[in-house]
C-alpha cells in the first residue's frame, strides 16, 4: 500500500496529467468471461499434460496392448561399435600459383639458351677462317694457275672498290724559284736531303 502511494506521488511529480487519468481500462471483456475461466482453464491444463497412455486409451485402447519394442533386426554389435564418424574437413585446394623457384628456373633456362647459342656462334666463326690452312698455300704457284682474264677482272674490281687515280690528292710541290735555288748552298741542300731521308726512314719504320 505504502509502495503504491510512493509510485503515485512519483508519477505526480513526473507527469501530473498522467496521474490524473483513471487507470480503469476503457476496453471491455465479453460478459461473464472471468466467471467460468478458471474451470475451463483446469480442463485445458489437464488435457495439455495428459499422458500418452491415457490419451491413447481414450482414442484406441487396443494399441496400448501392443508392445512397442522394435521388430526390425540390427547388425550384431551395432551399438557397441557405434561411433560417430568424424566430419572430415574439406581439403583446401590452393589455386596454382607461380612459385619463386619456377621463376628462377625459367630465368636460368633462358640464360643457358643464350650462353649456349653465343658459344656455338663463336665456335663456328673461328672455324670459318683456318689460318693454318692458308699459311700452307704456295702463293706464287697458285697465282700461276690464275688466268690473265681472272687477274684483269680482279684488278678492275679492286680499282672500282678503291676508287680512281683522280681521286688521289697529288702531293703539292712548291714551285722552286730558279733564282732562289742558286742561292742555296750545298750544305743546306745536303742537310735538306738528309732530313727528307730521315723522315722517309721514319715513315717506313712506323
Amino acid at each position: 500500500m505504502e509502495e503504491n502511494k510512493h509510485i503515485n506521488s512519483a508519477l505526480n511529480e513526473l507527469s501530473p496529467l498522467l496521474e490524473g487519468i483513471s487507470k480503469t481500462m476503457p476496453q471491455t471483456v465479453p460478459l461473464g468471461y472471468f466467471d467460468s475461466f478458471a474451470d475451463k482453464m483446469l480442463i485445458l491444463a489437464k488435457n495439455s499434460s495428459i499422458s500418452v497412455e491415457a490419451e491413447l486409451d481414450s482414442i484406441a485402447p487396443l494399441l496400448n496392448t501392443i508392445a512397442k519394442r522394435p521388430v526390425q533386426s540390427l547388425p550384431e554389435g551395432y551399438f557397441k561399435d557405434f561411433q560417430i564418424a568424424q566430419k572430415q574437413e574439406t581439403a583446401i585446394v590452393r589455386m596454382p600459383r607461380l612459385r619463386k623457384w619456377m621463376s628462377y628456373a625459367a630465368a636460368a633456362m633462358i640464360a643457358g639458351i643464350l650462353i649456349t647459342a653465343g658459344f656455338i656462334f663463336n665456335n663456328n666463326n673461328s672455324k670459318s677462317f683456318d689460318y693454318a690452312y692458308y699459311s700452307k698455300i704456295d702463293v706464287p704457284a697458285a697465282l700461276n694457275q690464275v688466268t690473265d682474264d681472272e687477274l684483269q677482272n680482279y684488278l678492275n674490281t679492286t680499282a672500282l672498290l678503291s676508287g680512281t687515280e683522280q681521286l688521289t690528292i697529288p702531293e703539292e710541290v712548291e714551285n722552286i724559284d730558279q733564282g732562289n735555288f742558286q742561292q742555296i748552298s750545298d750544305d743546306e741542300l745536303n742537310e735538306y736531303l738528309k732530313e727528307i731521308g730521315d723522315s722517309k726512314i721514319n715513315q717506313k719504320g712506323s
Binding site: 481500462m25 471483456v29 472471468f34 478458471a38 474451470d39 482453464m41 483446469l42 491444463a45 489437464k46
Partner: peptide, 30 residues
Amino acid sequence: DAAYTILVKKYQEKLYWHIRRMVVEHEDAN
C-alpha cells in the same frame, strides 16, 4: 485441482489485462 483453480481465479484478471495491453485484442489476449 483445487489449488490450481484458486490460483487462476486470483490472478486471471491481472494477467489478462497485462496481456491485453500488449496484444490489444481480446481474442489474442485470451
